[in-house]
Simulated assay, not measured.
Amino acid sequence: MRCVGTVVRGIRTPIIKENDDLATIVVDSLMAAKESEGFEFRDKDIVAITEAVVGISEGNYVTVDDVAEDLEMKFPSKNIGVVNPILSRNRFSIILKGIARAMDKITLLTSFPSDEVGNGILDEDILEESEYHLGSTITEDQYKETFGSWIHPFTGINMIDFYRELIEDEDCEVEFVFSNDIKTILDYNTDVLTCDIHTREKSTKLLKDEGAHVYGLHEILTEPIGDSGFNPEYGLLGSNKATEEKLKLFPRTGDALVIEVQNRLIELTGKQIEVMVYGDGAFKDPVGKIWELADPVVSPAHTSGLIGYPNEIKLKYVSDNKFADLKGEELKEAIKDEIKQKDDNLTGQMITEGTTPRVLTDLIGSLCDLTSGSGDKGTPVIFIQGYFDNLSHD
């Protein structure tokens, strides 16, 4: 009897740079890990590659000047409203620098008490005691008078002060407005750049329906500026700061990469191994209240065997109800038979209550992100075995 279910390994690789043959690096690193750790490949194993090294290897970078040039073409007025950017030095500050370099004035509207992914912007206890509520519109002067220069406990900075200095350093004027209704921006400007991630389509449509001239971040750098990088589907969404003048974009060649890696592994191992590219995990920090998913999707590319949802029964429910009178080995064998006989689609059945009805790549990508981390682990490839196993698999 097998005593271990799912096993997750972080795979160390060489430091990956632009123009590296990433497929070869991934496959060679996996084969080296196999020899070092003594594991064997099996059907339905999963290889996951972090989007960061995919974007790096394909050289998918843009400069602040590239961002500015694209925005100048789309907003010739040089005076725009910027709606709901996330409050992140890594994710948005270099984009904002490009916006400011292109414009003469920005009216920056941000939601409160936090941005889309949970980064706080003010003291919520003070908000509850103030005259303002979630439906209010708060000016910058009112914000400063009521909340002061609020310091985020994690970053140690006030993002409004940080963004103001960044914009003004580019000789651009800025006015901040705090509102949870994006249509508030139309009181200030009808040229609008929407910066929300997961509600981007809804936001751009809503403002366009009001007659505004609107682009979303997902529509900026969808084509190259000169020889710059680009992303035809997500634009600047999913980008990260590379230097003070450069952004690494979300990868665009992932579909070809996962197929190439899969084919090479099938040839080397004889096993049907699934491959995916993953970015941020789809989970929320219960302490900091940060929703990790600042990328537009968890997995921008994956092989076909990773499409779908889990189809699991809840062992506790079956044990406490259908087999309440059984114990020990008899109970285990009864549950194994129940699993073997389960329907191919258990949606809506009580026997699934308490399981996780989420997209497989969101679940697996979250597992990978937690394993690789965002620091110095040096494991941009994750190898998972037994993810699709259940108790009936011996």
Rank of each mutant, 00 (worst) to 15 (best):
F39E: 08
G308K: 05
T155E: 15
P85A: 04
I351Y: 05
L391N: 09
A33I: 02
D376K: 07
Y387A: 13
L22V: 03
N231Q: 10
K314M: 12
L109I: 05
A324K: 13
T184I: 03
P300Y: 06
I182G: 01
E312D: 15
M1I: 07
L30W: 03
D187T: 10
E168S: 03
M73A: 14
I351L: 02
P153H: 01
V117A: 13
D362A: 02
V83W: 05
G288H: 12
N180A: 10
I197K: 12
K342T: 04
E69P: 00
I335G: 03
F41E: 04
I138K: 06
E175S: 13
L87A: 13
E128C: 01
L134V: 04
F176Y: 13
I80N: 07
C3H: 07
R164V: 06
H218Y: 14
N84V: 03
T194K: 10
L363E: 11
I49K: 01
D20Y: 00
D125R: 12
I160C: 08
I138Q: 09
P357Q: 09
T253W: 00
Q385S: 14
C368N: 02
E210G: 02
C172Y: 03
D20V: 01
R2Y: 11
L247F: 11
D169W: 03
L391I: 14
N119I: 07
T139R: 06
P153W: 05
L207D: 12
V67M: 02
R12F: 09
G308N: 04
M159K: 08
P85I: 14
I25C: 00
V117F: 09
A294V: 08
S114L: 02
L217C: 05
D191T: 06
F230Y: 15
R9E: 07
F75L: 12
P251Y: 10
S239G: 15
T194L: 09
A23I: 02
F383S: 01
I121K: 04
D389I: 01
G5E: 11
E353A: 14
T269H: 04
T347S: 15
I266D: 00
D191A: 08
S36F: 02
M73K: 15
K183C: 14
D45N: 13
K340Y: 10
G238F: 13
L293D: 01
S136W: 07
L249Q: 00
S228V: 04
L257R: 01
E312T: 08
N60A: 12
L127Q: 00
A242T: 01
V8A: 10
A48D: 07
K327T: 09
Y234C: 08
P232L: 07
T6G: 00
R91V: 09
V214N: 06
E338K: 15
G148L: 04
V174Q: 07
L315E: 06
Y188W: 11
S111E: 12
R89L: 13
I151T: 15
P310R: 10
D45T: 04
I307V: 12
S372C: 08
D161Y: 01
D125S: 13
Y132E: 00
N240F: 05
V192M: 10
L331H: 05
V192N: 03
G365P: 10
E165K: 15
H133P: 00
V261G: 04
I160A: 07
V261H: 02
E165L: 04
L306A: 09
D65K: 05
E245T: 11
T199S: 07
R89E: 15
